[in-house]
Design a protein around this nucleic acid. Structure first.
Lengths: 349, 349
DNA sequence: TACCGGCGCTAATACGGATTAGCAAGTCGC
DNA sequence: GCGACTTGCTAATCCGTATTAGCGCCGGTA
């Protein structure tokens, strides 16, 4: 026999029922200790709270937001759709961390799936963007639009990028790909390789550039020879030709999928791995198919990345102590996975 | 030399810049053809639009929402955390479909990660629930709280459950587990099995009960003997004992993980599958480990499930024609995967 | 000339909650 | 007995947008 109440509960109705004013209800709910709220006696407070409990009233978040209050809503913007299988393995661990942190912090996640694709990439700022509903925002993606980042900084909208960003004033939690890449290159050099080849992605995203930086860094002050080549994996045959012509004994590949394909080509040609050719993957294992081989590689702590980013954003949103400049730009260490595709060169050529 | 504008762009400022009133700006942006908006001449409209473009103004979603407009925000409530690996394989396909549909519909997703766990399960209604921010909500989970569903119905909050629900007035998109389960049982019977065993989950969730219903349905008017037993998989030894004592030649198991474990036990005891014992899984393949075996099973169209649910919700939210009662309660067909674990009984006992 | 209707717009208000200034009544001090 | 202070609350305002009633003006009509 439940009465159908079509009208929403509001503070005004709560106030009527409790015999107080709307302001009092609001004060009971949000009042800081040092304001008028402190002057509301326990008895009144309880009366209001009782009514709220009976009516199961909850404040309208839009109204709160409009009035300038925080809502504990964290925006999540992904530069590509997050769930489809192509990108799922990239985003899922991040989202796992973000979700866990959000749950911990009592935040909801607003996923901006509606962002339209313009110029081949999703845009944050578009005519119906709903960024403003969130208290702040997490940005995920291999590459991000510099203009948009700058605009966010300029407008003072609180956000944290997942992945290191060059853009000034952008808070981020990233992975130290420079060190991790350099460490892997040094392993190869230590194993005796003198001629390396790096097949990297054509992107100019920070993480891609960082890997190249690390790669070059490890070569400094050595006599080791290296060839770099950009490839999107669409013409593996010519990639493979270039690799063989370089005479490299150790092949670094950024894309795990490409690495797997090249490995299959190598084996098909009768090469032994790592005897004739060592493989090192400077990318993140993703789809199961690419995990068929236990590549020598690194393993970025993606779940932690997501969680740390969410926590950083939450700190930025807090009223209290603001993170220092260093705390706003965090790099996490990347584990090295020894794998089985890096060995000493057999040096028969 | 970007001037630091701390203040947000508003319609009022746009109005000043364009030399019109705030109302005009709003009308230009949202005006329906049959209202005052139709009387704004093209010239003025363009002047306003120009300013909007220059300033890259976007409306504050909170204010829009407060003023009664739709926000194109679809709430997503999961009864368990959605991303962690235990449940990822259940939720991910659903979310894939939901995300795709949401993108298509221009909606954002509000994931209620903050819902606190009370009494072993997440609660929709809690002191700080932000359901109201979304236009409507999708509910995901194996089991849902009937009281909460009833309350949603009573309050007239638009929502769609993923999975069939018994609760009256609940719109859902579910899977026809009854038919799919019955079909698998009939296959077993057709293969010559006369003694079946069904190890089902102890849950009383609709999908779990539907499988039992389908199981029993296929037995009607047959002489086939069947044993049902609830198990949460924590005591496989006694489960196994019960199975063997029943003399069943075909074993139906709801949990893929439990099925895999039992299969290993069976093989360890020297039983051949499906020769000595057929296995049929009445559950959804989830973790990779459980996909080690090509079980005879069904395969619910989970991605489609998510997409259809999102689309249904969107229709409910539309102003136009409301879905009929039948359209509010959709059951999708479930594919049967022949697999390799169901065969004719060798009947040597 | 007085009236009517359409045009182009604006003033005013509603939405629900946060916040501040301040009112009325009581208490205290002297 | 009067001011000062405290207590317990409320009125009023603001947030940014959507929407409706309606104003002033103009051309046309009777």
């Amino acid at each position: 026999m439940a009465t159908v109440r079509r009208e929403r509960m509001t503070q005004r109705r709560i106030a009527e029922l409790a015999g107080v004013s709307q302001a009092t209800v609001s004060l009971v709910l949000n009042g800081k200790a040092d304001t008028a709220a402190s002057r509301i006696p326990e008895e009144t407070r309880q009366r209001v709270l009782d009514v709220i409990r009976e009516t199961t009233y909850v404040a309208d978040p839009a109204a709160r937001r409009l009035a300038g209050a925080r809502n504990k809503i964290v925006g999540v913007f992904t530069y590509e759709p997050a769930f489809p299988s192509e990108s799922a393995d990239f985003y899922t661990p991040l989202l796992t961390g973000i979700e866990a942190a959000a749950e911990d912090l009592g935040c909801d996640l607003l996923v901006f799936t509606s962002a339209p694709v313009l110029g081949g990439r999703r845009r944050i700022f578009h005519e119906t963007n709903r960024l403003g509903l969130a208290d702040g925002c997490l940005l995920l993606g291999l590459e991000m639009d510099t203009d948009e980042l700058e605009r966010l900084v300029r407008e003072g909208f609180p956000f944290v990028a997942v992945g290191r960003r060059d853009t000034e004033g952008v808070p981020y939690v990233g992975v130290d790909y420079v060190s991790a890449s350099a460490a892997l290159v040094r392993r190869a050099i230590d194993a005796g390789h003198e001629r390396l080849f790096y097949l990297h992605l054509p992107s100019t995203g920070e993480s891609v550039l960082d890997r190249q930086r690390g790669f070059r860094l490890a070569l400094e002050d050595t006599a080791v020879d290296a060839t770099l080549r950009a490839s999107d994996g669409s013409d593996l045959v010519s990639d493979w030709t270039a690799i063989r012509e370089s005479g490299a004994t150790a092949l670094f590949v950024e894309s795990p999928a490409v690495a797997q394909s090249l490995l299959e080509i190598a084996r098909a040609e009768g090469l032994s791995v790592p005897g004739d050719l060592s493989f090192v993957v400077l990318g993140e294992p993703s789809r199961p198919r690419d995990q068929a081989t236990d590549f020598t590689r690194f393993s970025p702590p993606r779940t932690e990345l997501g969680a740390r980013a969410a926590q950083l954003l939450s700190r930025i949103l807090e009223d209290g102590d603001q993170p220092s400049d260093e705390e706003l730009r965090v790099l996490l260490d990347c584990d090295i996975v020894p794998g089985s595709t890096l060995g000493a060169p057999e040096g028969r050529n």
